[in-house]
Every structure is written in structure tokens, then in C-alpha cells.
Design a binder for these strands. Structure first.
Lengths: 335, 335
DNA sequence: CTCCTCATTGTAAACGATTGCATAAAAGGG
DNA sequence: CCCTTTTATGCAATCGTTTACAATGAGGAG
């Protein structure tokens, strides 16, 4: 509540000196610095952020836009983001956009309003006009992580979704599976398209393309369950393995299989994606593809900082995934 | 990037009029309002938030402090908070404090810095000095949700943890269980103490107090697993039912039971807490206590808004829980 | 002793909005 | 037609910092 003026008068110096004592202590004499420190403690001074932001024309805040806070997949990415952000003195405003696209716009508007210095976009599901508009502005540091736009070249941090899918499918084929289905995320999602491409290319390489079958979900556990029922309901060609684009959906499939009396992995192998914490605690434990989530967050934040500071940056960073084999996969029919 | 001055000059009026056209349109003539609107569109004006915050002495931002973002339990509460907050034109800064208490302090410091107008505390695990200090300040709107301090009277929104526990234990006793153990959250946590009290009182009421046994976890799935193993490893008095203070821990117990060859619910009944989404997708589906999460968030945010606006408020709000019976509970030994 | 440099501090002008007060014009009342 | 009220607008101070620039004094070089 007290201002820099009061500190200055108590310390017996000008406000400029107080300001410098805080921002650039090396420019202030030892003695003055001490007096200022004492005065600050005495009056209980906290610099007014709004005034500082106004004057400095920066907010030390960045916006992280998520498709869905409640998806546990994102929380560890956020942790990575926060770690780097706080080190650099930035705050994070987390925005959830799932409900309506108006939300996203409100968050983007914080940038010209000097309420945010950059945007970290963790979803491609925002009105593209926003993004295109942003790119046109001179100062609008924007980084995408995890997802991306296939036709707009933005700085990105992603994993190699194509290769990850190839790896999963290769593994299933090597176990002897010949009917491998996929439950993907939203059909138009670029990362899902990449994974789908990996899936189909790998099947093709093994001469199995004609058995390909994909259902689109939404990454959520319920859609996994629903699409799982769809795929597994008795038919001529019931798949013996399902590759899911998220662990949550894989857990949904687990329930569908249980309900239909199919044993996992004996009658059905399942591969998930993300390696969320609970994937080790379901029954059977999930074979899945692990993404380096904290690292994605860290790299994305570092990239954004680079853009904000106008430093040269590596605009496209691709991180490694890892196939983690647990108990939800086996040779078809094996005990 | 353009300022109110440019708008004013284009619209041919003073900055005061532009400001009023935006903030209190009814005080500006129809014609001027239109000219201003056109000018704004023409120069692409967005009001500078920092300047506004400085002048208005408010930030339209509130801080929500969580123990752990990655806990799915909180995300729906956040949704409730956001809903109300956005309606009222507020932004939410989500703070994760788990790692170190310094974090919490940094967030609290935003208030005197005019960077936040209030704090929504979703954890009691912050240095109490912060809270006590906050209470002493004149303007420091602070609301607790879910958790609370037993010895500091702050405005709160909670559920009746005592009654919820009673209900769960009553139900287990009514099924015929005589050895009911508990896996609680952190031992010193007030809500856990409440639940523990409900647990013990109910056992006492049924003359079963001597069979009480509690292990402390940390709400996380791994601690449920570890404490589950502890409780279930063969001994003279293996419990036939376990009441867990979170669904995640219940899922951990499920794994422990599986590993020890115990069938749920035949050999062991399990009751969780929170009714997270995945509780319906594990095997067996979890009997649990549902908390009205979005409503907790909404009520807490409304309460905080009331405090910010200096309106009369209901300082302590208690919401209802509901026991949801699914398949993880049964009569002991029943098929 | 003079001049220059450097370290330290102060002065005052921004930053971009909001708003109390004053003023002018229009409307209403008698 | 004059006086009062209302409506619409402008003027200018203000919010609390930061920072370019100027000023001061001390110390060193010549």
C-alpha cells in the first residue's frame, strides 16, 4: 500500500534512487542501498506491478492456452513451463478454451493490452484467424507445443508423432498382430493425422493396409469406451490390437473389453499414448508411448522467452518419445 | 499498440469521451459513440490494461492457489471458478504450490503489488504466516475452498467431510464389515482429521472402535498402493474394507489387492472419495463419495467477489456430498 | 591548479488510461 | 424570455513507477 515516494522520503533520497536500488543495485552506493533496504522494510513496501508494467511496457506474464485443464496430460507440461517461467520472473496465466472459442480470443487480447508478453498455445483448436492475425502483428511472441497447424508456420515444440505411431504399430506387428485398429483423437487434429499416417504407412510396409480401421475419439476416457465398443462388438474382423491416441481412451477400451468378455492382453492388445500416471495402475498395466512432458513445457517456454527477447531461436524442436511395454500387449491368443 | 489519444484524435473528441464511450456508453451521445466506435475499429485500439489497472487500482485478476495442478480433482473446481470469474470480468492466475512454499509467498505478494484483487486458497498447505499476515491487512480478500485452517477463521466453502465419512462407514458397516481401515490424506490436514473423526465416531457408534486402523497417504495413487500393501499384507486382522480419502488412492489400493490376489469386492470392499472421472472406468468401478466440484468453485468465487466488493457475505458455506455406490463394495465374502 | 572521468544522485518527463470538476449547450419551467 | 436543470463534453490531475538527462562532487592525471 505504501509507495516508492514514502520509501524515498524515509530513506532520505529520491524515488529514482529507490528504484535503482531495487533494479540495479550496483549503480547505488553501499550506504544508500542499506538505507533504502531499511526504509523498505520499515514502511512495508511492495512495488506496484501495474505501474511498473505500464512504464516498462511489459507484463512479465505469459498465457498458456490449453484445450482442457482437466486432462492430466497437460499438468506436467504446465509444470515444466512454470519452472522455466518462474526462473525468468514470469507468471503464467492458464487459459482453458474448450468450451467456447470466444475464450481464446479474450486471452489473445491480453497481448495488445499489455497484460501478457507472449502466448504458449497447447492446442490447435482455436480460431485460426486469431493466429494469423497474431503473426501479422510485429510483437506477438507465440509458440505452439504438442500440437501445431499444418499450414501455418509457427515456432513449435512437438514429439515425432509419426515415428511414435510407427514404433507402436511395428511392435504390435512383431508380436504377430494382423488386425490392428486405431482410436484416434479428433479427426482433423494434425497430430492425430500424423499418427494416422504412421499407422497406415507401417501397415502398408507389412502388407496389412487392407485391415486398417480407425475410429475418431476425443482423447477422453468416455470416447475410448464408446469407440472401443464399436470396434470390438463381434464382427467378422474383430481387431486383435488397438492403438489409442491417449491413455485415457485406452482405459476406456479396457472397460469396453471387460464388458464384452475379452481378456487383455490375451484376446486384445492395447497400446496407449502419453504415459499418464494412472497407466501404471490400471489392470493390466498399459503399454504406452511416453512423451517427455516436463521437457516439452520447458523447451516451449525457453523458446518463447527467446522470441520475447528477440534472440535467435531454433524454431522447430522435436523431442523423443519412448515405447513403454507393460502388460496390455502380448502375442495374439497367448496365455 | 495504438492509444486512446489516437482514437480521440481520429474521432475528433477528447480522450475522456473515448474512455466514457467504452466504460459508460449511456453518458455519451449516440452520435459520438458511433464516431468513437468507428475510430476504434479504424486504428485497431485495445485499451492498455496496465494503465487501466494502475488508475483504477484493481487488476481484475484473482489468484487460485492449488496444492497440485496435476490432481484431476481440482480441475473441475477450477472450471467452476473460471465460469463465475469470467462472467464478472476477472482473470484467474493459477498457482501451484506443492514444490516449495516460496511459491505461495510469491503469489500472495501479487496482492499488495496490485496485480491481483483476491486469493482463492484451495490448500491449507501454505505458510500460515502468509495467511495471518493477510488477515491483518485491510484489503486482502481471501477465501478458502475445500480445505481450511482449524484455528484461523477465514471465509470458506467446503463439504461436510465429517458427515461424508460417517455415511461411508455406516454404509460399510451395514454391509456387514467389521474390520474397516482408512487410508487418509496427509495426517495433519484438517479435512482428513474431520473424515477421521467421522470414521472413528461411526465405528464407536457400532462398537467397533477397537478395529480402527488408519494409514496416512498423500492423496496420490502411489501412496494408496503403498499403504494398501501395508494394510492388506496377511496378518491376523486383515481389514475387509478400506475407506480412502481420494479416488486416486483407492485405485492404488485396487492394484495392491490385485497383486496380493484379493478379489474386490469379494475379499475387500473399497470406498473412494471425490468421484473423479476415472472412478467409473477402473475395475471394478469405484464406490465413492461425490463432491459437487464445479459448485465448490462457483460458490467460492462468488464469495470472493462478495468480499472484493465489500458486500455482505455468508462466510461459511457447506455443500452436500453424495455416496455413489458402484461395484467396489459388497457384503464381505459375498460372491 | 585545471580539466576530465567516473560514480552517485536528483529532476522531471514519460507510460496510457480514468475521473472530478468545470463548462457549454440544450431542454424545461414559469 | 429568463432562470434552472440536465446532458454532453473537455481539461487536467492522477495512479506509481522507470529512466534519459542533468547535476554534483570526488579523485586522478597532467
Amino acid at each position: 500500500m505504501s509507495t516508492i515516494k514514502e520509501v524515498a522520503s524515509v530513506a532520505g533520497c529520491s524515488t529514482a534512487t529507490v528504484s535503482r536500488a531495487l533494479a540495479t543495485p550496483e549503480k547505488v552506493s553501499e550506504a544508500t542501498r542499506a538505507r533504502v533496504a531499511r526504509a523498505i522494510a520499515q514502511v512495508g513496501y511492495t512495488p506496484n506491478g501495474a505501474a511498473r508494467n505500464l512504464r516498462r511496457r511489459e507484463s512479465k506474464t505469459i498465457v498458456a492456452l490449453l484445450p482442457d485443464i482437466s486432462n492430466p496430460f497437460f499438468s506436467e507440461i504446465i509444470n515444466g513451463i512454470e519452472e522455466i517461467a518462474h526462473q525468468a520472473g514470469y507468471q503464467i496465466l492458464i487459459g482453458d478454451c474448450e468450451r467456447d472459442p470466444g475464450r481464446a480470443e479474450a486471452y489473445f487480447d491480453l497481448l495488445p493490452a499489455n497484460q501478457a508478453d507472449g502466448v504458449l498455445l497447447l492446442t490447435a483448436d482455436v480460431p485460426r484467424a486469431l493466429v494469423e492475425n497474431a503473426r501479422r502483428q510485429a510483437r506477438f511472441p507465440l509458440v505452439m507445443a504438442c500440437e501445431f497447424f499444418s499450414d501455418i508456420d509457427l515456432p513449435t515444440v512437438t514429439v515425432d508423432n509419426y515415428r511414435a505411431a510407427c514404433q507402436a504399430i511395428d511392435y504390435l506387428v512383431s508380436l504377430g498382430h494382423r488386425h490392428i485398429a486405431t482410436i484416434s483423437g479428433p479427426a482433423a487434429n494434425p497430430i492425430c493425422l500424423e499418427r494416422e499416417r504412421g499407422y497406415r504407412d507401417t501397415l502398408t510396409a507389412h502388407g496389412l493396409l487392407d485391415t486398417a480401421r480407425t475410429q475418431a475419439g476425443d482423447f477422453g476416457v468416455h470416447s475410448g469406451y464408446a469407440q472401443g465398443l464399436e470396434l470390438l462388438t463381434p464382427s467378422r474382423h474383430r481387431p486383435t490390437a488397438i492403438f489409442c491416441h491417449s491413455d485415457e481412451m485406452a482405459i476406456g477400451v479396457l472397460k469396453a473389453a471387460r464388458q464384452l468378455g475379452l481378456a487383455v492382453p490375451k484376446d486384445l492388445s492395447i497400446v496407449g499414448f502419453d504415459n499418464i500416471r494412472l497407466s501404471e495402475y490400471c489392470d493390466p498395466e498399459l503399454t504406452t508411448i511416453s512423451q517427455p512432458r516436463p521437457e516439452i513445457g520447458q523447451k516451449a517456454m525457453k523458446l518463447l522467452l527467446g522470441l520475447i527477447r528477440d534472440e535467435p531461436v531454433e524454431r522447430h524442436q522435436v523431442l523423443e518419445t519412448r515405447l513403454i511395454v507393460r502388460q496390455s500387449t502380448a502375442r495374439p491368443g497367448a496365455v
